[in-house]
Design a protein around this nucleic acid. Structure first.
Lengths: 369, 369
DNA sequence: CTGTTAGCGCGTTCAT
DNA sequence: ATGAACGCGCTAACAG
């Protein structure tokens, strides 16, 4: 217990105390190579005595790995991301990895800084939900320098990285089909859609050319729009552009306002593009004094906890947050383990699908003869 | 751009490329000592050319600091902790520090592991909401070894560390007084209270001896119970033990069940001890078909986002999450900066107070003549 | 099985 | 103003 005033005991101290060489001490402590059991025992007890803690920095200097991942999200405190982080952190922990966290508030500048810091820390990989689909030079540089990235939620096309995303098109289509099957013909969609110019929106809808125009490389809200349009096309139901609410930026206030505008055009159902949009849309519906599902049906993309607490509870397409985090960590661990090989040529692109939880916020409209 | 197959450029590479010594390169890159401006410029451009990134591990080996904090919470994805983490991470980032995160699911074993890992990483300090008030040997060892800790939310007595907590007693008393002032005389309280044996509960209440029995060193739910009792005593209103719901462990299901039981004893108001309890209590109220505030008034400790979304919105005592995270990081940064001194003798114990947000979920009961 | 030694990349003396 | 050399704590070659 004789701590040298806060200075940590080193492997040399332990070796001396156990009357062995540093190499032997290293073998005993590191659990590798040949060490006589008794010797090992002596070393370990000396280590305990001195309160010895391995210095990861020194190890990292040699091995090049500090057994650490970096994780970058745009909003750490959102229910969606915090759940993903939780599972990624836990999975990593169980496999001996720590996680450094960064919150960018959707700022590319901070994201760039995060990547730079992580490079200095020589992280074994980065899990990131890119803030922008276009401004990704720092990410390209990172992978060019040998860094490993797993993208989550969003996927930048052409970026040499693995990814774990949702089948946005398919899940949104399933949501839309559910509403269509319930007899709805005027389904509103509220999303950020900042990549779709308002001027183009009408044309895209009119042509039902979603598949051609909204390709990979768009943010989730756009891909989900595509699912919405695809479902309409497949069902032979025309889409009214006025029912598509575009916030342009990411805030619930904007979603509320967009919804308010869309409600003027008498939709019978509302589909949101994610949790924040749900919050805004729900407020707008409430403010308008409309009742769910009698006056309007509601289907939320993202299953937030409070959806079960309002009256009536709201139906939702739930994303498998825990799996997203786990898969991302799993991929990174796999790559870190097999880092000796020159890096496999291909990348994993895992697409999970959302599951619709029906809580009764969707009204079935009787078919008019 | 000639990356050596993933290997990072070192300061030696940069020095060679710039035709200077490593010492000079170090001075230029580290921004210390004397360097001729032109030389510096040359070094910096060489560094950029080679995509050089300082290796923090090497720096840490010398300075003993990796400019990193550790943070340990029991539930990363709770609204309360994720908000605290967000602000702590941001504040740390702005001051050049990274944050490693651990989620313990309230497990002391994982907490112990987290501390051990953080020691290996030679973190400059740990921000932690201790999972247990008693099982804290690993924390004592950490500070005994020269480690710095800032406790948040909870505070273990006698642990040599700073802390940032809420004035639990005062805030809970204010909540209770608000309900008393509205004319309520049968106020239920739902809390975890695992440190108060059910057998003792009756006696504690009967004696109104809270101040003497529930001292520092108890978890928040107990301290808040004390505020609840103090307010009653000060107002001269007796407390009915049947109105105190004790879950014993931390889950919303338990809170729902405890509330259900308490509702049998006809409270006119409900005070919860934190966000999770609020969720459970609210579900119980809803399940019982009671209307807020007509049948029962509701005041939540912790201001969750959804409280504004239910009908009617629920009043709450809001904790200053952002400030908690900031203050914790600020203290740690201050101590890390002044680490040369043998450590100041005293510790900071910051107590913030909650602010009550009234949204109309409290009914005013007319005084009976 | 164990000890000796040489770095990992950088910061920091000292000289020059 | 710049360069040479040592050391932070640990692992990995070697010898023995």
């Amino acid at each position: 217990m004789d701590d040298h005033k806060g200075r940590h005991a080193t492997i040399v101290d332990v070796a001396q105390a156990a009357n062995v060489s540093v190499a032997t001490a290293g073998r005993a402590l590191g659990d590798y190579g040949y060490v006589r059991p008794e010797t090992k025992k002596a070393v370990l007890s000396a280590a305990r005595e001195l309160n010895y803690k391995k210095n990861i920095a020194a190890r990292a200097l040699i091995s090049g790995s500090a057994q650490t991942f970096g994780m970058i999200v745009s909003d750490l405190s959102s229910e969606f991301y915090s759940n993903i982080i939780k599972s990624a952190v836990n999975y990593s922990r169980m496999h001996g990895y720590c996680v450094l966290i960064y919150d960018t508030h959707e700022s590319t500048a901070i994201e760039r800084e995060a990547v730079a810091i992580f490079q200095k820390h020589r992280v074994d990989g980065i899990i990131i939900a890119p803030a922008s689909m276009r401004n990704v030079g720092h990410l390209r540089d990172f992978v060019a320098g040998g860094g490993r990235i797993v993208q989550i939620d969003r996927r930048v096309p052409g970026l040499a990285s693995d990814s774990v995303t949702l089948d946005n098109v398919g899940t949104a289509a399933a949501c839309t089909m559910k509403l269509l099957a319930a007899g709805h013909r005027r389904i509103a969609y509220i999303g950020e859609l900042d990549e779709v110019k308002p001027a183009d929106l009408g044309r895209i809808v009119a042509e039902h050319a979603a598949s051609a125009r909204i390709k990979e490389g768009f943010a989730p809200s756009c891909q989900r729009l595509r699912g919405y349009l695809d479902a309409h096309r497949d069902a032979g139901v025309p889409v009214c552009p006025d029912l598509i609410g575009r916030t342009g930026h990411y805030s619930w206030e904007a979603a509320r306002d967009a919804t308010q505008a869309v409600l003027q055009h008498e939709p019978t159902a509302l589909l949101t593009s994610d949790g924040l949009m749900t919050t805004g849309a729900f407020r707008a519906v409430r403010a308008a004094g409309m009742r769910i599902p009698d006056d309007i049906s509601f289907l939320s993309f993202d299953d937030l906890e409070w959806l079960q607490l309002v009256d009536p509870p709201l139906s939702a397409a739930a994303q498998p947050c825990a799996r997203i985090g786990e898969e991302a960590a799993r991929i990174l661990i796999g790559r870190a383990r097999g880092a000796k090989e020159p890096l496999r040529p291909g990348y994993e692109h895992i697409q999970l699908s959302g599951s619709i939880v029906d809580r009764g916020s969707i009204r079935t409209i009787p078919v008019l003869a």
